[in-house]
Design a protein around this nucleic acid. Structure first.
Lengths: 339, 339
DNA sequence: ATCGAGTATGATAGCGCTAACATCCTGTCA
DNA sequence: TGACAGGATGTTAGCGCTATCATACTCGAT
């Protein structure tokens, strides 16, 4: 009848060697303070001698507690989410939890599917990107029985916890910065057309209106994934449509770099003839020539804090705040140094 | 004594509803052909009605088979590994396996620790980056009882399976390309100083020697993580040490972009005065002005194929080959268009 | 000595599933 | 009609761990 045993030592082996019951070993490993010092020492010795490692699957099954934190991201290759993921990983490394990553590729149906799949596996907690799930999924997330954190945004509609910042406000600040530097005909380029891009676009519009610089609006959008080449193409389109354009707010840094290259290809001076602002402040923005003004966002911290909040809640504690606004900072550089 | 049940339906619930024994349900789910068509239909109906999802933990515990593929990468933020990870994820999405990711941050001790940790959890298979583990870990990997694939390299010393390409040969081809374009004083810049960088450096040296263009060698190295700014700094160092430098082979594209910017900052014409070759052919290389010559590598495919090989082996089949050389291609662009 | 409170350990059952073997059918053939 | 092969299903035990309750022991207060 014997199921084939795995061959490696079990908790029972340790117990036998240490001359105690299995449950005591279990306790010694989980709540060392609940076991007398010398039994604990004997157990630790046995653990070392046998090279015992607890089986996480069995632990989960017996305790009913899962150790998996589900993480739903729209992209793995985008620098932004790579940084977030790094923060998530580092935060999780300090704990006994595991991460399971799902990649929606910016598709809402895929997001629906993956969130449902994760939830069915009873994760210890879940991290989801953004606030713009489908209506059904939003309702679903509002009712799950594990801690949930949404990232990347600031807002009132989070299902549970939220860490992020306002893309809208950051975009407005970018436009105000350009206006203060004397730029007047400020275009927008955006790719992918995901919710965050739309919020940035709205911020750009609103700031233009407030400054009396629009409508009409100069914008070039493309649903394709963002790329440096697309930045070139989109700026080219803006320039062809309105050659008097004097600045561009780019929805991200790849596009901004492309815009810089397009200016170079056309012999347009940056910042003299054209001002450029990017978004995210990737490392290369500071190294570019001219260096590129950008919005610094705290992507790594966002990942870290999101996990820390989840871990607090899993432990039954309350995090300092359920809504964290990490803010942003406009880093002014040469690409807007005019006047 | 009742452990608190999870509340969701179990296999036993399905069995009761379908009027069969639990084991039949188990079989119907795993080996549908072993169950008669109409019992199967009843079971499927019950599964649907109860919205039953099998508990993977219990399955693992009972069967002794894990569904986790451990993936050990040196970085998550580096574009190269982000692409590899995407390939891994996509390939795994077609299967019933899960990925567990570990990030060594290019530290050998961390790699030792993480590989041992993964192995102790009895993964279904494991993917490890590179061939340069510590001696102890290499021996250990040679003796594990699950399929293993190493990625990123070409060589004879793989513990089990291998997918990658020759960094050494790619570097040599870069230098030959530069030489063919008339460049003579070809430097090297490298960051991080990881094994792949060293192989590229060796290839560069060897090609220089073969072409009678060295020693001495012009190189600038830095153990810091790679960055565009570091590319600027290192090219600056090379130029300051030997102002007659006329080309640079960069260990990766970030450095190459930095080199381009440094040339721009100094008013040095590329490709006229300085030729630049990068490595990996990130998207931005084609969009830069001037566009940058680079070595195209198949990072996404590498991730995909590695997983496919593992899955074949887990299923007890033999993959087409245990060593796959994905090759590389030098993409000649404007940054070396001279003469 | 008795009691109660607190601490340390143990006995038992069970988490949800699958392996291994056992049994029960059904149909076929002598 | 009985023997038998082969497919479908059931019985039993167990994977490695933890929850729950029970028990044993210590110690100070009465």
């Amino acid at each position: 009848m014997s199921q084939r045993r795995s061959g490696r030592p079990t908790l029972a082996d340790v117990a036998r060697r240490a001359g105690v019951g299995p449950i005591t070993v279990s306790r010694a490993l989980r709540r060392p303070d609940k076991v007398s010092p010398d039994t604990r020492a004997r157990i630790e010795k046995a653990v070392r001698e046998l090279n015992y490692v607890p089986d996480p699957q069995a632990r989960v099954l017996a305790s009913g507690r899962s150790d998996v934190i589900g993480v739903v991201l729209p992209s793995l290759t985008n620098n932004v989410y790579a940084d977030v993921l790094q923060g998530i990983h580092d935060a999780v490394a300090d704990t006994a939890f595991q991460v399971q990553i799902a990649n929606t590729r910016y598709a809402v149906e895929e997001e629906d599917r993956l969130i449902a799949l994760f939830a069915s596996q009873r994760p210890a907690a879940m991290l989801v990107t953004g606030l713009d799930q489908s209506e059904a999924t939003r309702r679903f997330l509002g009712a799950v029985d594990f801690p949930l954190v949404q990232i990347m945004e600031k807002g009132e509609t989070a299902a549970d916890m939220l860490v992020g910042f306002s893309h809208h406000d950051a975009a407005k600040e970018s436009v105000r910065h350009l206006a203060a530097r004397g730029y007047r005909r400020i275009g927008f380029v955006g790719a992918r057309l995901d919710p965050r891009m739309h919020r940035r676009r709205e911020g750009w519009r609103e700031a233009l209106v407030e400054a009396g610089m629009g409508p009409p609006f100069r914008e070039a959008l493309d649903p394709a994934p963002t790329s440096v080449m697309l930045g070139r193409t989109l700026l080219a389109r803006l320039l062809d449509e309105g050659p008097d354009l004097d600045a561009v707010f780019c929805a991200n840094d790849d596009l901004a770099l492309g815009a810089l290259f397009e200016c170079r290809a056309r012999g347009l001076d940056v910042p003299g003839r054209i001002g450029i602002v990017g978004f995210n402040d990737l490392e290369m923005m500071a190294a570019a020539v001219p260096s590129i003004t950008s919005i610094q966002t705290r992507r790594y911290r966002m990942g870290r804090i999101a996990i820390e909040m989840l871990v607090e809640r899993i432990a039954g504690r309350e995090p300092e705040a359920r809504r964290v606004d990490l803010g942003f900072e406009l880093i002014a550089r040469d690409s807007t140094r005019r006047g």
